[in-house]
Design a protein around this nucleic acid. Structure first.
Lengths: 120, 120
DNA sequence: TACTTATTTTAGAACAATTCTAAAAGGAGG
DNA sequence: CCTCCTTTTAGAATTGTTCTAAAATAAGTA
């Protein structure tokens, strides 16, 4: 765990929970001016591989990184682009169609309008 | 509906169901040597906008295009990369967490091992 | 502490998938 | 068979991400 890796983890942990590489880079560079985007990617991969954070892939944009690997699902606000946590319980049984295919994991993003955007 | 647009739709319709732009381009070029990748993309967008086909986004690779827009879900074989159809019924109710967020739509890909790959 | 070795960081190029641009070609309606 | 609007083309541009090789840093060992 290098200083920079720790800093990137800290940035995520201190955030609202979901950040994209460019924003992490922006914040990390404020602390470490020599920081480079490749280092952000390297460390996000390393942290995800170590099970400390989670990578979330969404259609048509950069990936998000989740401050926690705890199982939960996500909703993407179609108005502001923010990623929200939702709790749906374990969906394995739901995704096991007629018991014929093994469910290793899944990528799920629900499209919604967040409370803030609903008011505007 | 131009000749080329019709050809791209036909290629999809005559396929196993799920193709990626580069493969559609390869097949379309066999029929129309002047075909260009941008035309494939243009027409896939046009056909998807018209509700004739469906665009399916998967993590870490090119999008798939589904020959039918009928609602159903997909499983991706982690071994061979093939996309399979699965029927899970309407998941709207499942994805409505505690009734607080509107569910507009969703992107779902289940990771599995297809029957063929299970045997090998 | 000093040395060795493995890992990380950097800078920049490379890459893949997709989109954009402007000009040429094609198709539909009158 | 004109006119106008849409599509196609060729190629450059863009975005997000990964790769490469060299320099820097960290960790383990003596």
């Amino acid at each position: 765990m290098t200083q920079k890796r720790a800093a990137i983890l800290a940035i995520l942990r201190e955030s609202e929970g979901h950040l994209q590489p460019d924003e992490i880079y922006r914040r990390a560079k404020a602390r470490y001016p020599g920081m480079v985007l490749a280092t952000v990617y390297n460390n996000l991969h390393a942290l995800a591989d170590a099970g400390l954070i989670r990578q979330i892939h969404t259609a048509g944009g950069a990936d998000f990184y989740d401050k926690t690997p705890e199982p939960h699902e996500h909703a993407l606000c179609t108005a502001c682009g923010k990623l929200l946590d939702i709790e749906l319980g374990d969906l394995t049984a739901v995704f096991t169609a007629q018991g014929d295919l093994p469910v290793h994991s899944w990528d799920l993003i629900v499209h919604t309008t967040c409370p803030t955007c609903q008011q505007n």
